[in-house]
Nucleic acid binder design. Structure first.
Length: 747
DNA sequence: CAGCCTCGAGTTCC
DNA sequence: CTCGAGGCTG
C-alpha cells in the first residue's frame, strides 16, 4: 500500500487514518501477546507505528486518547530496528593529565589562529549510555542508541518509559534531536539487584551494565520497571538554533523540561576547568551516580562550528577522565595469539579479579616490548620484557574497557620466576616468526599455510564491514574451516558451499543444530552477497594496510574491480623497482657517513630504478596508484604483492567468478559547488587558518591538495602567493582570493 | 624532516 | 579503546 505523504494529508484524512492505525496496531499487539501468528510483520508494524507518530506530529490536536504512541508496553520484538543518525553521534577525545587539558586549549587557539581567552562549559561525564531523542513538532517520535555513531538501535518504546524523558515538548523547534545520557543511580541499582536476586534473576555488575541491560530490553514492560534516568547535554539535527552558546542550549533544555546536570559550570580558562574538575572529583562519591570524568566544551557555538570535527571526535570538546580503577592479581600464564596478519600477540592469563565492577581474567600485553614509562592513560608500565609468569601484577581497564597491566610488584616475585621466552617460531604452525627492523610486532611468516592466519583472514572476510554474511560469523568459520565434509579454506569456498556436492549438503543438514531451514537460510544469505560493493570487496581481501578507508579510496579511484586489477598488474614492474630503490637507499644509509649523505641517495635510488627497466606505462600506473589520496608506497607495495602472489591471486580470481555484481561506489554528492573539485590554498589566509580552510572545503566534498597540477580545479590565493598562483594562471586554472572562495562556498 | 592526523590491527567483556 | 605506523603538511 502506498501512503499519501504526511505533508499533504488533509485534517479529515489524518483523523481517519489515526483511527485506522489505532485499530490495526492494537490488533497486532493483541495477536502478538496472545501468541497467535502476528497478522503483520515486525517491519510493517514498525512502519505503521512510525507513520502514526508522524501524523500526530503534524496534527498534535488530533492525537487520540488511545494513541498507539502511548502504548508503552509495546509488543516485544525480535530485535531492534536500525536508525541512521542524521547527525553522527561522536565520541570524545580524552585527557588524563592537567597537561593534556592545557594542550587541548592551546590546540584550539592555534587552530583558530588567535590566543584570545576562550570560554568553556564543564560538566560531569555520566557513566551511562548515550541516547538520541528525536522530537518532531514537539512530539517524541524516535529514540536511538549511539551504536557505531552512524547507525544505532531504535529503542523508542523503551525510552518512552523513562520518567526524565518528556513525551511532548512545549515551544520546541519543529525538529529537535536531544542527546544525553541514560543512567541508573546507585540507590536504584542496589534496589534492583536485591530485587533481582530475590527473584532468582541475574544481578548486574555495575550501574552502567544495569542501565544498558534495561534500555535494551526487547519487552519495554520490563524497561518500565527499571528506574532509568536521563541527563540532556547535547543535540543532533535542529530546525533552528538553541542559542548562541552551549550554556544557553543547556538552559533551553532545562526550560523544555529535561534534566540537566546541576554541576554544569561556565569556566574561563584552563585553570578554572581544572579547578572544577578537582571539585567534582571531591564530590564524586556523594553524587549518587557514576561519573568517569568531566567534559569540557567550547561555549561559543559559532566557534564550535568553526572548529568542526576530526574523523570521530569534535575539536571543541574533550573528556578529562578520572584515573582508572586498579586491582592486583596473579599472572598465571602468558599465551601467544596469532592474528590475521601473522602478528604474535602476547595475552596475560590472570587469576580473575574485579576491576571497576567487572571480572577480568585476560589482559592484552600488546607486543614483545611493552616498554617502561607511562602509557597514554598516564599509567606506569613495567618493563615489558621482564614480566614473568607468577608475578603479582596491577590491572586496570584502559578507557574502562580493555584490561591492561599497569605495574608489577617485584618484591613479590617468586624466586622460580624466569623471563618470558618470546617465541621465534609461530606457536600455531611452527614457521619462523620474525621481527622486521623497526617494527614492534613479530610476525609468523607462514602466510596462509598457518591455520591461525587462514582462519583469522576468513573471519575478516565475513566480518561486519566486509561481506557480513548473516549466519556465518567467527564461530561458524572455525567450524567450517576444520570441517571434514564441507571445508571452507578460501572465500570462494563459501560461495561453492551449496553446489559442491549434494551428498555433503545432506550431511550438513543432519548435523547438530543444522536443520533444513538453517541451511537454506545460510545459502540465501550467501547468495545475497554475490552482489557486493566494490569497496567492501577490496576491504574483505584482508590485504595488509588496506582497511575500510583505504578500500573506499581505492574503489573511488578505480571504480571497478577490473580497472583495479589491470592497474596493479601494469604497475608491478614499477612497484618492484620502487622496493629495490628503497632497499638500495636503506643499504646506503647504513654505509654512508652523515656528510653528503642526502646528496648521494637520490642517484642511488635512480640507479636502482633504472636497473629494473621500468616501462613507461608501468611507471605511470604506479604513480597513479600511490597518487591516490591516502595511498602511499607502503600500501601500494602491499597491494601489488598480494595481487602478484600466485596463491592469493588465484583466490581473488576465484572469488570474483563467484560474484554476480560488483557495485561501483556512488558518485560523491554534487550538492555544493565545490564537491569533487580539487582545491589548493596558497599565500596567507586572513579570515581562517589553513587547517580550518581545508576542513571546511573537505566537508563540502572538495579535495584539498598542496601543489598545483593539471588536476587542480581551483586555487585560492591570499596575499604573498607566489609560484603556485603563477603556475595556476599558466595552466588556466581558476584563481580566487579568499573572499571569492568564501562567496563560492556560501552560495 | 618533524610533528600531526588518520587509519589499521589488535584486544576484553557483556 | 589503544598503540603503532603510514601519509601528508608546513
Amino acid at each position: 500500500m502506498v501512503d499519501i505523504s504526511v505533508d499533504t494529508l488533509t485534517e479529515a484524512q489524518a483523523q481517519e487514518e489515526l483511527l485506522a492505525l489505532a485499530i490495526v496496531l492494537d490488533q497486532a499487539n493483541r495477536a502478538y501477546h496472545g501468541a497467535d501468528d502476528p497478522e503483520i510483520s515486525d517491519a510493517e508494524y514498525d512502519r505503521l507505528k512510525k507513520r502514526n507518530a508522524q501524523i500526530e506530529a503534524r496534527f498534535p490536536h488530533l492525537k487520540r486518547s488511545d494513541s498507539p504512541t502511548d502504548q508503552v508496553g509495546a509488543a516485544p520484538t525480535d530485535g531492534f530496528g536500525k536508525v541512521r543518525h542524521s547527525v553522527r553521534m561522536l565520541s570524545l577525545s580524552n585527557a588524563f593529565e592537567d597537561q593534556d587539558v592545557k594542550e587541548f586549549v592551546a590546540g584550539i587557539q592555534r587552530y583558530l589562529g588567535h590566543s584570545d581567552a576562550l570560554a568553556f562549559v564543564a560538566e560531569p561525564k555520566i557513566d551511562g549510555l548515550s541516547l538520541s531523542l528525536r522530537y518532531e513538532n514537539g512530539v517524541l517520535v524516535q529514540a536511538a542508541t549511539r551504536g557505531d555513531g552512524a547507525e544505532g538501535e531504535d529503542v523508542t518504546a523503551n525510552a518512552l518509559t523513562i520518567q526524565d524523558i518528556p513525551h511532548q515538548l512545549q515551544g520546541a523547534p519543529d525538529l529537535l534531536e536531544v542527546r544525553g545520557e541514560v543512567y541508573m543511580s546507585h540507590q536504584d541499582f542496589a534496589a534492583l539487584n536485591s530485587r533481582q536476586s530475590e527473584r532468582g534473576g541475574k544481578t548486574f555488575a555495575n550501574p552502567r551494565n544495569a542501565a544498558a541491560g534495561s534500555l535494551r530490553q526487547l519487552d519495554s514492560r520490563i524497561t518500565q520497571e527499571r528506574p532509568l534516568r536521563f541527563f540532556a547535554y547535547s543535540w543532533g539535527a535542529l530546525s533552528e538554533p538553541l542559542g548562541e552558546t552551549q550554556m544557553q542550549a543547556i538552559d533551553r533544555f532545562k526550560a523544555l523540561g529535561f534534566q540537566v546536570n546541576p554541576l554544569t559550570r561556565a569556566c574561563a580558562s584552563p585553570q578554572e576547568l581544572i579547578e572544577h574538575y578537582r571539585s567534582i572529583e571531591q564530590q564524586r562519591a556523594d553524587l549518587g551516580y557514576d561519573i568517569d570524568g568531566v567534559v569540557y566544551k567550547v561555549n561559543d557555538l559559532a566557534l564550535q562550528d568553526r572548529l568542526g570535527f576530526r574523523s570521530t571526535t569534535p575539536r571543541w570538546a574533550i573528556a578529562h577522565k578520572f584515573p582508572a580503577e586498579t586491582a592486583w592479581t596473579h599472572l598465571e600464564a602468558i599465551d601467544i595469539q596469532v592474528g590475521r596478519t601473522g602478528a604474535l600477540s602476547p595475552v596475560a592469563r590472570l587469576t580473575p579479579v574485579t576491576v571497576g565492577g567487572v571480572v577480568v581474567s585476560n589482559a592484552t600485553l600488546h607486543n614483545e616490548d611493552y616498554i617502561i614509562g607511562r602509557d597514554s592513560n598516564g599509567m606506569p608500565i613495567r618493563e615489558g620484557r621482564d614480566l614473568r609468569v607468577g608475578d603479582w601484577v596491577q590491572v586496570y581497564r584502559a578507557g574502562d574497557v580493555i584490561p591492561k597491566i599497569a605495574d608489577v610488584d617485584l618484591s613479590k616475585r617468586p624466586d622460580t620466576a624466569t623471563p618470558f621466552p618470546f617465541p621465534t617460531q609461530c606457536p600455531e604452525c611452527g614457521s619462523d616468526a620474525v621481527r622486521e627492523e623497526g617494527d614492534a610486532v613479530r610476525r609468523c611468516t607462514g602466510g596462509l599455510i598457518c591455520p591461525a592466519q587462514a582462519i583469522e583472514k576468513l573471519k575478516h572476510f565475513v566480518s561486519r564491514s566486509a561481506f557480513d554474511i548473516e549466519g556465518l560469523g567467527a564461530k561458524q568459520i572455525e567450524m567450517f574451516h576444520a570441517d571434514p565434509v564441507l571445508p571452507i579454506k578460501t572465500p570462494a569456498d563459501i560461495f561453492s558451499l551449496q553446489t559442491r556436492d549434494a551428498a555433503a549438503i545432506a550431511k550438513l543438514r543432519n548435523r547438530d543444530g543444522w536443520g533444513e531451514t538453517s541451511a537454506a537460510n545460510l545459502f540465501a544469505a550467501i547468495d545475497q552477497r554475490r552482489s557486493i560493493d566494490l569497496s567492501r570487496l577490496i576491504f574483505s581481501l584482508g590485504i595488509r594496510h588496506v582497511g575500510e578507508v583505504g578500500a573506499r579510496d581505492l574503489a573511488g579511484h578505480y571504480q571497478s574491480w577490473e580497472a583495479l586489477v589491470e592497474a596493479l598488474d601494469l604497475a608491478r614492474p614499477a612497484a618492484l623497482a620502487h622496493r629495490k630503490a628503497d632497499q638500495a637507499e636503506q643499504a646506503e644509509r647504513l654505509n654512508a657517513l652523515a656528510e653528503h649523505r642526502r646528496a648521494r641517495l637520490k642517484p642511488i635510488r635512480d640507479a636502482a630504478i633504472a636497473s629494473y627497466d621500468v616501462p613507461a606505462d608501468a611507471a605511470s600506473a604506479w604513480a597513479d596508484l600511490i597518487g591516490v589520496d591516502g595511498i602511499g608506497a607502503v600500501l601500494g607495495l602491499s597491494l601489488s604483492d598480494a595481487f602478484a602472489n600466485k596463491t592469493e591471486r588465484a583466490a581473488f580470481d576465484e572469488l570474483r567468478l563467484a560474484l554476480t555484481r560488483i557495485i561501483p561506489p556512488e558518485a560523491p554528492s554534487s550538492e555544493s559547488p565545490v564537491s569533487g573539485k580539487t582545491v589548493v590554498f596558497t599565500g596567507t589566509l586572513e579570515k581562517m587558518t589553513r587547517a580550518e580552510a581545508k576542513a571546511r572545503a573537505e566537508a563540502l566534498g572538495a579535495k584539498v591538495s598542496g601543489s598545483v597540477s593539471k588536476k587542480t580545479d581551483i586555487v585560492v590565493a591570499g596575499p604573498g602567493a607566489g609560484s603556485k598562483e603563477k603556475k595556476a594562471k599558466d595552466l588556466g586554472i581558476t584563481v580566487l582570493d579568499e573572499d571569492g572562495w568564501l562567496a563560492l562556498i556560501s552560495a
